[in-house]
Simulated assay, not measured.
Amino acid sequence: MTIYRAVVARVRPLTPSMARITFHGEDLAAFTSTGVGDEYVRLFFPHGADRTDVSLPESTENGGWRTPEGQPEAPVRNYTIRSARPEAGEIDIDFVLHGHGTASGWAAAARPGDVIGLNSPAGLYSPPADLAWQVLVSDLSGLPAAGRLVENAPGGVTTRAVLEVPDAAAVQPLPDRPGVRATWTYGGNGHGPSRLAELVEAAIPPGTDLTGGYVWVAGQTNALRAVRRYLRKELKLPAERFKVVGYWMPDGDTWTERYEALPADVRSELDRMWDNPADEPEDLTIRYEERLSTLGL
């Protein structure tokens, strides 16, 4: 894994709820995009008031990172790459502006010259070789990835995107061409109950011919638990036919604190749930998420 130093080059408001920040820098000339539409990086933010002072971590031999001894630990958040232009040494990242949190607060005040760190990208979108149609569903947090996936949709593949945003002001232009269709709905996103599970079921109802299909869903993590169950248990989709990616959680900043406050035996029980290698990872995830739900997590 490589750690890059990136400098804000431009800030462009896209909608009242999202801004696009372009990063550049000598380091980014070596940035290698995976080309996968939902590729993401970890962003390392300044730890203090100086927006150019970032305690960049060091790569480790096992593919991780560590903070240099004696240096403060940088706040870290995961973000999708909206576009990458290695020839220009630039990448774009779209930030949701929701008025709270480390990343959103930083982005709201971003200006040219600000500095962050980021690591090598990884992608999750992985359609099967026989892809004939795909359904992409996300809330506002997944919109940058969904937008890039729509833009990169292969010719001859029917692509339907269903996008839940707070209101009409959050809608962004997406390609309009044969075989590609975007549907916008309003709600969720912390302003009301998420409708992601409902939207997935409406887009792929029981009885749908699933031959050649692929489903990608991203957004509010706890709302996606019902989505995963529906795709896996009701539609009986093989794991390689869908990807469900949690991007954010209500009160996410306290989630780890609440998890660590669980009794030791409960945390051990949760850890042991991953110990059966004979089970499919998606089935393990479903059982794990069901247990988290019973614990209020």
Rank of each mutant, 00 (worst) to 15 (best):
T159Y: 12
R160M: 09
V162I: 13
L163Y: 04
E164N: 06
V165E: 07
P166Q: 08
D167S: 13
A168Q: 14
A169T: 15
V171S: 00
P173L: 10
L174F: 12
P175C: 08
D176S: 13
D176G: 00
R177H: 10
P178V: 06
P178L: 02
G179D: 10
V180G: 08
T185P: 01
Y186D: 04
G187N: 05
H191R: 13
P193H: 04
S194V: 01
R195N: 06
R195P: 02
R195D: 07
E198I: 00
E198F: 00
L199Y: 03
E201L: 04
E201F: 00
A202N: 10
A203K: 03
P205F: 12
P206V: 14
P206R: 14
P206Y: 03
D209N: 13
L210I: 06
G213I: 02
G213C: 07
V217R: 04
T221L: 01
T221R: 12
L224S: 06
L224I: 06
A226E: 13
R229A: 15
R229V: 14
R232N: 11
K233Y: 00
K236R: 15
L237D: 04
P238Q: 10
E240A: 12
R241T: 06
V244D: 10
V245R: 11
V245Q: 13
Y247M: 08
W248F: 12
W248Q: 04
W248S: 04
D251Y: 09
D251Q: 14
D253P: 02
T254L: 11
T256E: 15
E257D: 15
E257G: 15
E257H: 11
R258C: 09
R258G: 09
L262P: 01
E269P: 00
L270P: 03
R272V: 05
M273H: 07
M273R: 10
W274T: 13
D279W: 03
